[in-house]
Amino acid sequence: MSGAQAGTGVSPADPYRIGHYVGFRQGTAGHAARELASKRVIVGYGFWIFLLSDIVMFSTFFASFGVLSGQTAGGPSGKDLFNLTNVAIETACLLFSSFTCGIASIGARTHDNLMYYGGMAVTFVFGASFLYFEMHEFVDLILQGAGPERSAFLSAFFTVVGCHGLHVTLGLMWLLTMVAQVFSKGYRPDILRRVLCFSLFWHTLDIIWVALFTIVYLMGAGQ
């Protein structure tokens, strides 16, 4: 297929030529015109870059945890402290919240109030339950005398798990903001792009939790 055809040919299956990057075309005025992807794709890409930078930040916490996980300074190790039932409940909360967040994002695209508000409400409940169980665990550890000041291992543990919990807290605030914005402004394209970014953020928190329960809890409890 020649370049000229690639620029002008429109197939019925792909009328908007999405994803068919055609490079620079000679416009009638003689200067090059570039075909841009849709704003939704560009916003998603930009936010994905931010999320990857967030993941890189978490990788530094994981690296310090990996280095310090054995440095218990005579204090309790993960095997003595971790309650895997609690961790399993937290994991279930986040997994189901990811699913309901997906339902909410379908509801946003279809302008379906029940799916959007219902999905967001259930996501909030699961996220808040996750935070409750995590706070419960933190308070329990501190009352046992296994707070972040006890050993390098516990400092690293509270840093990496607490940073994830902080992200979940911010995510819950963002969730409420998106519910309020859709409620007051409706399903406008710019609002829907924010909902898309929120759902990407929430799914990424779940991805970080997968790495977290595997490396910190499951491997830590086995040591």
Partner: peptide, 20 residues
Amino acid sequence: ISPGDDRPDRSEIAHGLIGY
């Protein structure tokens, strides 16, 4: 509105739900 921004029909909704 670009493609993907427009409202999906029923089969696309079912497809999305099955995916999740």
